[in-house]
Simulated assay, not measured.
Amino acid sequence: MKKILFVLPSHDDLGNTGQKTGYWLEEFAGPYYEFIDNEYEVTITSPKGGKPPVDPKSLLKENQTDYTQRLQNDKSAMEKLENTPILNQVSASDYDTLFLPGGHGPMWDLSKDKDLKKIVEDFYNDRKVISAVCHGPAGLLQATDKNGDSILKNKRVTGFTNSEEETVKLDKTVPFSLENRLKELGSNFEKSENFQPFVVNDGQIITGQNPASAFLAAKKVVEILRNME
């Protein structure tokens, strides 16, 4: 049985706006069920453990999908989300794939979490699949290869774009531009139209541009894992 490690943020303040943030429900729910329905074992973790904060906007009716509704009625899944282990208690060696959903929370904590840095590097060095969606690639920014270069250098990647950040009027709120930072690391950043599904796969690294890309990214993970069997 393949084992998937999800890492969700513990950060819940949307900058200095007085609003809350966290992970985006759709970006977790769709991939979660893609893995569960393929009979993979899923572990959910977060930097502080316990219940990771969910972005309240992702709970609004207009942002609900069949998968988010299924999740909220799934007692087993909700129990997992209530009691995530602390990130430093898990080991990359126990898992086949790392999956980082987005939401704005990762921009503040996963972007600089040292435990996540080590986990990402362990996955990378063991040639395991790493996938991140929307703002999830913020969790890959610190990771370097054995030469000290970014694991994203010369890699085709995507993530939440400057244009999308401006559209949701948070370009002045986020601590940095994800698109710019990915480019600064030497990646080959690609993008599609705002909020349209778009997934990039370069070797063991799979990235999705926005919430609409999360399920497709998970499907790509499943495809690669099957080809590795």
Rank of each mutant, 00 (worst) to 15 (best):
E223M: 14
G103W: 00
G159A: 08
F6A: 03
S192N: 05
E164Y: 13
S10K: 02
I130V: 15
T17W: 13
R226S: 07
S213P: 04
Q72F: 10
A212N: 05
S46A: 11
K80A: 13
G136N: 08
F198P: 00
Y40Q: 00
C134P: 12
F99L: 06
F99D: 01
D94E: 15
D122S: 15
L81E: 08
I151W: 08
I119S: 09
N73P: 10
Q72D: 04
G15C: 03
T158S: 08
N83G: 11
T158I: 15
T207W: 00
V129D: 06
V157M: 09
V199Q: 01
K153H: 09
D126N: 13
R127W: 07
V200T: 06
D149I: 09
L98I: 05
L116H: 10
D13Q: 10
G136S: 12
E184S: 14
Q72K: 14
G159K: 01
F189R: 09
R70A: 14
N210Q: 10
E82N: 08
L182T: 14
V199I: 06
L152V: 13
I151R: 06
Y40A: 05
D109Q: 11
N73C: 09
V129I: 15
N162L: 14
D126I: 09
D37H: 11
T45C: 14
V200S: 03
E193G: 02
T21Y: 14
P47T: 05
Y33Q: 07
P31D: 01
P52V: 04
Y32A: 09
V133M: 00
I119E: 14
A92G: 15
A29H: 06
V120S: 10
P9G: 07
V54T: 03
Y23D: 01
L98Y: 04
G159V: 01
N147G: 05
V120T: 07
D37K: 06
M228G: 00
E79I: 12
I130C: 14
Q204A: 13
V90S: 10
P175W: 15
K118A: 13
A138V: 13
P85E: 11
V174K: 06
K153M: 11
V199T: 10
V222F: 09
K219W: 02
G186T: 09
N188P: 01
G18Q: 06
D37V: 03
I44A: 07
S58A: 13
A217D: 02
D37F: 03
M107L: 15
N38G: 05
K2L: 12
F189I: 01
S91G: 12
F99P: 05
M1E: 15
E79S: 11
T17K: 09
V54W: 00
K20C: 02
G136H: 03
N201L: 02
Y95P: 05
Q19A: 14
G30E: 07
K155H: 13
D113I: 05
L60I: 08
A217Q: 01
S58F: 07
L185K: 13
K20W: 03
D126P: 01
S131L: 00
D55V: 01
N38L: 09
L140I: 15
N38T: 04
G15T: 15
L5S: 11
G15S: 06
G49E: 06
